[in-house]
Design a protein around this nucleic acid. Structure first.
Ligand SMILES: NC(=O)c1ccc[n+]([C@@H]2O[C@H](COP(=O)([O-])OP(=O)(O)OC[C@H]3O[C@@H](n4cnc5c(N)ncnc54)[C@H](O)[C@@H]3O)[C@@H](O)[C@H]2O)c1
Ligand SMILES: NC(=O)c1ccc[n+]([C@@H]2O[C@H](COP(=O)([O-])OP(=O)(O)OC[C@H]3O[C@@H](n4cnc5c(N)ncnc54)[C@H](O)[C@@H]3O)[C@@H](O)[C@H]2O)c1
Lengths: 256, 256
DNA sequence: AGGCGCTTGTGAAGAGGTGCACAAATCGCG
DNA sequence: CGCGATTTGTGCACCTCTTCACAAGCGCCT
């Protein structure tokens, strides 16, 4: 879902076990498990079965068990998993034992929302600095943080030990900003701008594009509409239009 | 990456070809191709090779060709793809020939940013209504739209033919809001709240959780730090700590 | 007209992920 | 102390997705 260049093995090709080397799909689900576990802990639950946790995380229980087995987690047969222990395990694997410092670049419409969001703090992150290129924005205070000019990035990155950069600038500025982040040593970037970033090997980029999400939903909406419209019609009109699909797409599923 | 329940075949199990039935992975990439194509079109390019488009979209060229072949797209061997034609094809497949109406529920911190974002309009969507439960927020005008009380949802959904619902409320309110959306006929939901939504079959839910994205980045950051720290150390200290990983995680990759 | 270089479309192999189904392990209870 | 109920961990088969490699097709140049 984004750019990842993790070669199969590190430099030394010997029998170094290294990290458990989780499947990427598992890594992507661990945070969801973690969130569900925190909910359970808040509810006072001390143990949870794979079935229960799977339901809370919205996945298949077999998948969950396999995921947890990958990180060598010790559940107890006949009982389930110890909630507190599992939270610790997952946080450890995800590297959340330390609170990572995040730098946010681009404090506009979206950047403001991100900067003002307190949900990051409770999930292992600390927004450590805000940057913008617009002099009018520099100096503004949001949630106790003062927006700094992007030229300060180099200095601040060192001071705050920035681990992750978040880009919320217009698309045109995203690549230069990414280059700047990489230049000061940031190796993880979360990009909200709708564009592809080119970064050197070893730097991870994840992208969030809301319009893409909507367009994927649109596809399914479109497909659902076609399916409900066809069975009565005959199904031949559609295959006859390879390029421009059927026109019966105005009522959609509203009123199903 | 979210909840999808699309059974293999529709009701009639006959030889109805129905829609091309694209692989889900392909569907997820089409919007990216579309964005890249629009950029090319703006640059005046009339044709593009799979290599060129793949680079612009950040994917492998073989993958791109296979994706496009799935939707029966006609490129020209020796030349490439006609940009304008391909844009039309993809928009048609994604159901973007009509501008879909989006309802946004929860006009808080994040909701404000979404409501004020003009990038949706250029990508096939129209934010048609804003809702909130807070009486203090109702009546506020954002970008020409007035925030309405969520109780009006039923009436407005019918009037505006809402196709997609976006949830930007606190997690606790997300499920009730989803239920309300489903009740008024919305079959596609984009959820920003960090929680699992339960919806009836036939309703598609996609989820965007920024904290999860950060946590995935954190994992890779953590892993990279371990890898650079180990080769010199020896590699045994780590396997001896199944639960609490190595402590050498303070310098990270900063200064690599 | 013919040949040459370029690019698409695709078969096939490989890699990765999913889910079933069941053996192994643990607890509680009689 | 043994037994049954329960739940984990995992081998295996299936499926989807990715990637390679190359034949087929197209346009251009001579
Ligand atoms: N607002 C949303 O809801 C939303 C939704 C989806 C995607 N996005 C994307 O997120 C990005 C930001 O959106 P927005 O609505 O906040 O835009 P915006 O114009 O409101 O904010 C962009 C900010 O980035 C700053 N900026 C520009 N160049 C910069 C640079 N080189 N260095 C540092 N800062 C710089 C600008 O001064 C501005 O403050 C855009 O790429 C947009 O497409 C936004
Ligand atoms: N702000 C961010 O950057 C950010 C980032 C990641 C995730 N999120 C998530 O997005 C959601 C919204 O975040 P936020 O920062 O905007 O929160 P917020 O509290 O600022 O806004 C929530 C809004 O939802 C409204 N609301 C509450 N219950 C409602 C209901 N039943 N019906 C309609 N509206 C209702 C509230 O009145 C409020 O206006 C949260 O779930 C949050 O975890 C936000």
């Amino acid at each position: 879902m984004s750019q990842h260049r993790h070669p199969g093995a590190p430099g030394s090709a010997g029998a170094v076990p290294a990290l458990p080397d989780l499947p990427e799909a598992t890594v992507a689900r661990l945070p969801e498990y973690l969130r569900a576990l925190h909910n359970l802990a808040d509810s006072g639950d001390e143990t949870v079965s794979s079935e229960g946790l799977a339901a809370a995380a919205g996945v298949n229980s077999a998948k969950l068990r396999k995921d947890l087995s990958h990180l060598g987690s010790y559940g107890t047969r006949g009982v389930g998993y110890d909630v507190a222990l599992l939270i610790g395990q997952i946080e450890s694997v995800l590297g959340l034992t330390q609170r990572r410092a995040v730098a946010l670049v681009g404090v506009g419409n979206l950047g403001h929302a991100l900067a003002g969001y307190d949900g990051f703090a409770s999930r292992g992150f600390r927004i450590a600095a805000l940057f913008d290129a617009d002099p009018a924005r520099v100096g503004e205070e949001i949630n106790g943080l003062v927006v700094q000019h992007v030229d300060e990035l180099s200095r601040v990155a060192a001071e705050e030990s920035i681990a992750i950069g978040v880009i919320a600038t217009p698309a045109a500025a995203a690549q230069p900003v990414a280059d700047q982040l990489v230049a000061v040593g940031v190796t993880s970037i979360l990009n909200f701008a709708p564009c592809v970033l080119s970064v050197p090997e070893g730097v991870d980029v994840r992208k969030v594009d809301l319009a893409i999400e909507l367009q994927i939903l649109s596809f399914h909406e479109h497909r659902k509409a076609s399916l409900t419209a066809l069975p009565a019609a005959g199904g031949s009109a559609l295959t006859a239009l390879p390029g421009g699909l059927a026109a019966s797409d105005s009522q959609e599923a509203i009123g199903t």
